[in-house]
Simulated scan of single mutants.
Amino acid sequence: MHFPLMLALAVGAFFLCRKGGTKISHAVICAAFGFYFADTAAAPSLHSAVNSVMGMLSQLG
């Protein structure tokens, strides 16, 4: 995964915890879900979709 995308997701999670009422425990559970989801058979498809979207966004700007 691209580092800028990871950074944007981390910043988004921080602001959700800070302003959106998301608790730290919710963020930890979501991070653990993502970590374990990366080991499933669906991970390559999701990775490919994210790369496609990032490619389209990079062409726009």
Results as ranks from 00 to 15, higher is better:
S58V: 05
V11N: 10
N51I: 06
G20R: 00
H2E: 15
L60R: 07
C17A: 14
D39Y: 10
L7W: 06
D39N: 11
F3Y: 13
H26F: 14
S25M: 13
F35H: 10
F14E: 08
K23F: 11
H2S: 14
F33Q: 04
A43H: 03
Y36Q: 08
L9H: 07
A41Q: 08
A41S: 07
L57C: 02
L60I: 06
G34T: 01
K19M: 10
V11H: 10
C17S: 14
F33D: 08
K19R: 15
Y36C: 08
L60N: 01
N51A: 14
A42W: 06
M56Y: 09
L60Q: 07
S52W: 10
F33S: 07
A8W: 09
D39K: 08
G55I: 03
A43D: 04
A13D: 01
K19C: 09
L5A: 12
S45I: 06
F3C: 09
V50P: 05
L57I: 04
F15P: 03
A27H: 04
A13Y: 01
A27C: 01
A27Q: 03
F35D: 13
A32R: 02
M54D: 08
H2T: 15
L9I: 07
L57T: 04
K19L: 13
F14N: 06
M56D: 12
F14K: 05
K23S: 13
T22N: 12
T40E: 00
L5T: 08
T40M: 00
F35W: 09
G21A: 01
L60F: 05
A49K: 08
T40G: 00
V11R: 13
L57H: 03
A8V: 06
P4D: 02
F35E: 11
F14S: 04
H26Q: 15
A43L: 02
L5Q: 08
N51Y: 12
S45W: 09
G61K: 03
R18V: 00
Y36I: 04
F15L: 14
K23A: 12
P4Y: 04
G34P: 00
T40A: 00
H26P: 10
A32H: 05
L9N: 05
A8K: 12
G61Y: 01
F14C: 05
L7E: 10
S52Y: 09
L57S: 02
